[in-house]
Amino acid sequence: MELQERLQELGGSGIGVAAISYDSTEVLNDFAEKRGITFPLLSDKDSAVITEFGILNTVVAEGLGPNRDNPEVVASVHKYVAASVFDSIPLRQMINGTPFPGTFMLDANGRVTSRYFEEFYRERSTTSNILLKAGIGLTPIAAIEGRTAQLKFTAYPSDTSVTNGTRFSLAVDVEPHPNMHVYAPGAEKMGYRVVGFNMNPSELVRFEPANFPESEIYHFEPLDEYVPVYQEKFTLLQEAVVNASAEAEEIMEELDALTLSGSFDYQACDDAICYPPASVPITFTLELEHLDYQRTNQR
C-alpha cells in the first residue's frame, strides 16, 4: 500500500492515519503482515461505524433485495460497486456492508477539513494526491528541475506508479526570481499567458482542470493594470485520472509504463520588462501496475 510509504511524512506533519473496513481482525492481520503495514487497519466487522458515518454502500443491499434483477439496479451495482467480475449473488453478499470508499482529512478536533470520495468505483485517488490537495507538502520524487532567467521550478508526479482508475497529480513548485511575477488565471483576459502544464492529450489519461492556489493582484502602474499574479513560491496541481475502461485496460496490459508529455508554460515579467511566453518541454514516465484480482485470504 502506497500510504505506508508516506507514513513517515504524515507522522512528521503531526497527522495520524487509520483505515477502516468491514474485514475481521484476522484478515487485517494477514494483510498487514503480507504488505508490511504498520498503521492501524481497523475492523468494523458489522459495518456499524461505516453506517454511523453515513457512507454505507446501499447499492449492494439493493442488489440483493427484491429488485436485484432490475437491469437498472444491476447497472448501479456495476457503477458503484464493481463490474462483471463481481456479478454474482454470492459475491454481492460478500461485499454487502462495504462503504463507498473515500478519505476524510480531519483537524486535531476531529472536524473534516477536506474529503475525497469517488463517484466511479474504479477511480481512486492516491494517498499522495490527497496529501498534495490537502496542502501537505511532499518530498518530490522523480522530479524535473528547471531554472530559467525568470524562475525556478520543480515538476513531479504525486506517484511514480499508477494503474487503471488511479487519480493522481502532476505538481509543479514554482519560485519566481526576486521582483519577478508569473500570471494567474484571469490574466489571460489582459493578454498574458497563465502559468501551467500544457499536457498532450492521451487516450489513456484524462486531465482534469488545473488546481491553482490563491493569487495576488499586481498593480502595473504604467498601464494602470490590476493583474492576478504569483510573486512568491507556489505549487500548482494538474490532476489526472488513468482511464479505467475495459478497452484502456487491454491496451495497458501490453505496457510497462505510461509516458505523459507536454510542456510547462509561463510568462514572467518584472516592473520593467515583460518577457515573451515560454514553454519548457517536460515528460513524465510512470510505472504501470497491473490490477490484481487475487484475494489475499478467505474471509
Partner: peptide, 11 residues
C-alpha cells in the same frame, strides 16, 4: 489531525 480512510476490503 488525521487521515481517515474507508475502503472496501483488504481481502
Amino acid at each position: 489531525g488525521a487521515m481517515l480512510l474507508f475502503h472496501r476490503s483488504a481481502d
